[in-house]
C-alpha cells in the first residue's frame, strides 16, 4: 500500500471550502486540511467523523472519580481511621471535593495523553511539515495518492478544484 500523498494549497478560505466540496464529490480521499485559522463548515465539508476523545474523557473522569472516592474510603476506614469531630469514618460529604477533583484531573490527563498518542506527538517524534506556509497564509489540502496510475487523475482533480502547488510526497 502506497503511503505517499499529494499536497496542494489554496490562498483563500472560501475557495478552499468550494474546492474541498468538489474533491469530496469526485471521491478524492482527503487525509487532512491545514488552515492558519478555523474555517467554518470545513469539518462537515471534509466529512470528518466526530472525535472519540469525548468518550475517552468520560471514561477517564469516571475512573478518576471512583479511584478518588474509594481511595479515600480505604484510607479513612481501613488504613488510618481517625475520629474527626465525631464524624463517621466513611464520611461521604467530606470525600466529595477530592472525588470531584480526581475526576476532573483524570479526565483532563486522559484527554491530553490520548490526544498526544493518537497524533504521534510523543517525545522524540519527528515533526511532519507538509508546507512551511500552512500556518501562515496557505490552506493546505493533503490527499491520499493511491496507486501510481491513479495519481495523475487525483492531481487533475485537485487542479480543477482550484488548488495550486500540487506536489507528490513520498
Amino acid at each position: 500500500m502506497n503511503k505517499s500523498y499529494i499536497t496542494a494549497y489554496y490562498t483563500d478560505d472560501d475557495a478552499l471550502l468550494k474546492g474541498v466540496r468538489q474533491l469530496k464529490e469526485k471521491g478524492v480521499e482527503i487525509i487532512d486540511v491545514m488552515t492558519p485559522f478555523p474555517v467554518h463548515g470545513l469539518d462537515k465539508a471534509v466529512g470528518l467523523r466526530r472525535s472519540r476523545l469525548s468518550r475517552v474523557a468520560f471514561v477517564g473522569g469516571a475512573v478518576g472519580g471512583l479511584i478518588g472516592f474509594f481511595f479515600q474510603a480505604w484510607v479513612f476506614t481501613k488504613a488510618y481511621p481517625i475520629n474527626f469531630g465525631g464524624k463517621p469514618y466513611l464520611s461521604v460529604p467530606s470525600f466529595m471535593p477530592v472525588t470531584f477533583e480526581m475526576a476532573v484531573l483524570f479526565a483532563a490527563f486522559s484527554i491530553v495523553f490520548a490526544y498526544l498518542i493518537y497524533f504521534k506527538l510523543t517525545p522524540g517524534a519527528k515533526p511532519v511539515i507538509h508546507d512551511e506556509r500552512s500556518t501562515d497564509d496557505r490552506f493546505l489540502v493533503v490527499v491520499k495518492a493511491g496507486e501510481p496510475d491513479e495519481t495523475p487523475n487525483i492531481e487533475r482533480a485537485l487542479s480543477e478544484a482550484g488548488a495550486e502547488g500540487i506536489k507528490l510526497k513520498a
Partner: peptide, 12 residues
Amino acid sequence: WFSQYMLIWYAN
C-alpha cells in the same frame, strides 16, 4: 446544594 449541605454537615 452540596455547598450548603456540606458546610452545615461538617460544622455540625
